[in-house]
């Protein structure tokens, strides 16, 4: 894509400001780390252990902070109206991400989209990236390219203020599959919770040129 000088400058400016914020505001990078971890938590299999009132309060609060009050209310309605909202979300999680009828909607693994297989070479590339950064998978972990682990990894990078690593991971290993995954879930889900969670992750991991802030070329 050809970018005009002004848009290149603008992009550069954003990167600089991002860079600057990271360098100077370490609390911000800790906030980013927390947010990644929270998003990872949102994508765990629903369990009353963690999916409790506190969790939803934090979730609604977060949505409110971003101006997504209507969406938060929609989720609250779905949760409050249900006789067993955990089971609703478990069924929906299973259908979307594990095994479903008519078929699993969106397995949360990068290599499903990049290699058309579980545990393809993309998963290995992902694991190698973790390793290069000094991280490893725990024994009880899921596959390295599982959405939850990728978000956990991004959180750890943010915590270490490795913003260059974070950006490289996002552009090379995260966005290429996530941008295929996200619309599948958003369009197919029958529960507003998952639509909101994948949108939240999407927004937060988008490249600047993807998010519509780029100036017209004219």
């Amino acid at each position: 894509m050809h970018l005009s000088h002004s848009s290149i400058l603008l992009k550069y400016f954003y990167k600089l400001s991002y860079f600057f914020l990271y360098m100077t505001e370490s609390t911000t990078s800790q906030d980013i780390a927390s947010l990644y971890r929270f998003m990872a938590q949102c994508m765990q299999y629903p369990d009353p252990e963690w999916m409790n009132e506190d969790f939803f309060n934090v979730f609604y609060n977060l949505l409110g902070t971003f101006g997504a009050i209507t969406e938060g209310k929609e989720i609250r309605d779905a949760v409050e109206k249900s006789s067993d909202f955990i089971e609703d979300l478990q069924i929906e999680y299973t259908r979307l991400f594990i095994n479903g009828v008519p078929h699993v909607v969106a397995p949360p693994f990068a290599s499903v989209y990049m290699d058309k297989s579980i545990q393809g070479s993309f998963a290995l590339r992902t694991l190698n990236f973790y390793r290069e950064k000094g991280f490893t998978m725990e024994d009880n972990a899921d596959l390295p390219d599982h959405l939850v682990h990728e978000l956990e990894f991004l959180s750890l990078l943010a915590k270490e203020e490795d913003f260059a690593g974070e950006e490289e991971f996002l552009s090379k290993l995260f966005r290429p599959w996530y941008k295929q995954f996200c619309p599948r879930v958003a369009e197919e889900t029958r529960h507003p919770y998952y639509r909101m969670v994948v949108t939240l992750i999407d927004s937060f991991t988008k490249e600047e040129e993807e998010d519509g802030f780029q100036l017209n070329e004219a």
Binding site: D31, N140, H146, K206
Partner: peptide, 29 residues
């Protein structure tokens, strides 16, 4: 929301504090 917007949202610092309290202790990575 965009990441950029997030970075510009001063009020977020307050909002994110409890985030860590509702996540489980272990991570796979």
């Amino acid at each position: 929301l965009t990441r950029r917007k997030f970075l510009q949202t001063a009020s977020l610092a307050a909002a994110t504090i409890p985030l860590s309290k509702v996540v489980s202790a272990e991570t796979g990575v």
